[in-house]
Design a protein around this nucleic acid. Sequence first.
DNA 1: CGTCCGCTTGAATAGTTTCAATTGAAGTGG
DNA 2: CCACTTCAATTGAAACTATTCAAGCGGACG
Lengths: 243, 243
Amino acid sequence: MKKTACAACPLRKFEIFSAFTEEEVEFTQSFKSGELQVDPGTTLMLEGMPSPQIYTVLDGQGVRYKTMEDGSRQVINFALPGDLIGLHAAVMGEMSHSVESTSAMRLCVFNRCDLWRLFERWPARAYDLTWLSAVEEHFLGETVAVIGRRSARERVAWGLLRVYSRLKAVGQEKDNTVPMPWRQQDLADALGLSLVHTNKTLQRLRGEGLADWTEGRLTIRDPAALAGVGHFEIDAPVRRPLI
Amino acid sequence: MKKTACAACPLRKFEIFSAFTEEEVEFTQSFKSGELQVDPGTTLMLEGMPSPQIYTVLDGQGVRYKTMEDGSRQVINFALPGDLIGLHAAVMGEMSHSVESTSAMRLCVFNRCDLWRLFERWPARAYDLTWLSAVEEHFLGETVAVIGRRSARERVAWGLLRVYSRLKAVGQEKDNTVPMPWRQQDLADALGLSLVHTNKTLQRLRGEGLADWTEGRLTIRDPAALAGVGHFEIDAPVRRPLI
DNA sequence: CGTCCGCTTGAATAGTTTCAATTGAAGTGG
DNA sequence: CCACTTCAATTGAAACTATTCAAGCGGACG
């Protein structure tokens, strides 16, 4: 992402994400209310429900999804380290989707009530929050474009690539491999595809040596080659934990 | 949307969107830098570009879209009165999509640099901004679910209904009719459908008396009946102009 | 040992896209 | 004032992509 700053105003500072000052650290310590450890398969948030708490993901992975009347599911996106969970409920009063852990997760817990305190006392952190929300919006826009206009092959390539590059950005990559603890059904639900077709597409990509997702681990030897499937950019803006 | 408030903290105030105090009005006047009037077909923001300005839509309609390498287009959503344009560029440094007016539009203009001033001086307005961003995220999530999991008929019904209810919420509805100054291609691009199929689906809905979109005007006699096509809710949270 | 769950496979079906061509309205220039 | 162009909406038919249905396989677990 190119950086374009307004030289005269402090906005520039926040594009670079300055380190925390001592004073800030002290305050944010008081803001953080605890840590939470959950098992795989735990429902963290439920669509339509309020939530007294907000989490940031410190470790582990999950899915955000909406359930349709007919029982089918649409995965909105994946919850990875650095993500914020529950901002919707905090800001709008209720969650617009459910969130479930798919691996063991470690979460940083905030009280919703403290959110206002943050806005009042730490405009810089409030700004970070808005930034995070804007980045999320950016990704969702991309998702809409991919699901709306891409072929199955391109969608799968994009989905794998996005998971890979986001996890790589938070240091989870090793030997071109990242942990990807989901079922093929989860990916299918994320891409708006059927399970069967997703399976066949994954196999084709695997056969071509572009991406190998087996046993909960995704290996991409040549990300650029996989990106070539749909001329994708490999530029996942990193989401950084709020505190 | 159900309201759930945290009784002990001032957050509740912002769920209801309190009226502006005199002091606030005075400040926001200084924040607002002008008004802009544009013709139909004007490109307001370009994907990948920074923008020194942020707009809120006071009047008129536009589309936000992404262009793919092959020249096809995905409309991310529509820009209606109350919407914020350019927050992405302001917060992230560049736009993630383009924005174009499809009717004459009147816009309220802010300088990007002032954004920081707002966060620092008016936490309540900064909070509004985050709220707006969260609402946008909410809608995009819904869009993902619709495009990913719904049939063409349901998508079209949903698209029409959403435009209708959002415009109704801002007082643009009269005799069950709202202005909808787009081409069928725009709707097709928004729903991830081909033009031909969108056309045929629109005709079917028209024939069934569920929705009539002709000559830039959309008439829905019985919104509930149209919503029945896909068991949709008719609950568009209203976006309110920031200032 | 039997059951459950996720992955895999093949075949039939259906929904949607693509291609190709027509119409009508609106705008342009001679 | 009339060809000529352009653009959006419309229509029919063919081609294709992705879904659905149905069944089998292997590992994990009680």
